[in-house]
């Protein structure tokens, strides 16, 4: 049968759910071992953070889409958590191979890392359900939005929900794509569009941590860099 937007969306949703069916709502044995190998075991903080962010997410999803859809928000959050654990494990395996270390205590106790990774997983889930549209309000990229309630929860909505700096979200995108080779072409394209939006606009808004980093880089680098203006 000919491919229609509805059929394509249904296929993507089925594929995502299928990929995550074997992934539990808890860290796998392998991921739990990475947690245990840390100087400071992050397990409790990870669980607590997911509880807090889960409540915030469901509440805000209900506000955006409608109070009757709170259950849908919870289902999407559950899928997002599964993807978060799956990708985290793959990232750590890849880092273990690259760095030959098994103790990722600093990274796994970094709240911003976890929030960014979870936000990226949820963005993938939301984009799979809602299609690759972007929130209205001046963004020229994306598939033109549409007028369904789904557009209210499209990027960069998740950044606002988790009070996450776009610059921190940006950091996980590439590693996320590398760590999950099962992501569809459309989802990769969606994440790439998020990346472009951040790079071109969102990261440059007032209050972005990027300005402080640039300042530090400029101050710290001035003595080291002796390149001429021409180079």
């Amino acid at each position: 049968p000919p491919q229609t937007p509805i059929r394509a969306a249904m296929t993507s949703i089925q594929q995502l759910r299928g990929d995550l069916i074997s992934t539990g709502d808890q860290p796998s044995t392998n991921l739990a071992t990475y947690f245990k190998n840390c100087t400071v075991d992050p397990t409790q903080d990870v669980v607590k953070r997911l509880e807090t962010l889960g409540q915030t997410f469901s509440q805000r999803f209900g506000q955006a889409v409608g109070p009757r859809c709170v259950i849908l928000g919870k289902q999407r959050f559950t899928l997002g958590v599964r993807l978060y654990y799956k990708v985290m494990e793959a990232m750590l395996e890849s880092e273990e191979k690259r760095l030959s270390v098994q103790n990722f205590s600093k990274l796994l106790n970094d709240s911003t890392f976890h929030t960014s990774l979870l936000a990226c997983a949820l963005e993938v889930v939301m984009a799979t359900y809602g299609g690759s549209s972007f929130k209205a309000g001046g963004y020229s990229h994306g598939g033109g939005g549409g007028d369904t309630a789904e557009t209210d929860v499209c990027f960069p909505w998740i950044l606002d929900v988790f009070s996450l700096a776009a610059f921190d979200f940006y950091k996980v995108i590439e590693s996320f794509i590398k760590a999950d080779p099962t992501l569809s072409k459309d989802i990769v394209k969606h994440l790439e569009t998020c990346e472009n939006l951040i790079m071109e606009r969102i990261a440059w808004r007032t209050g972005s941590p990027l300005f402080e980093l640039l300042k530090q880089e400029h101050e710290g680098g001035a003595a080291e860099q002796v390149e001429t203006p021409a180079s």
Binding site: R98, S175, K189
Partner: peptide
Amino acid sequence: SHDYHFGLEDHEGISELFDCD
């Protein structure tokens, strides 16, 4: 597969991006 351009070098990963190698 997809056309995503990977910009990170082989010696860079998520640990460096969050300043904890």
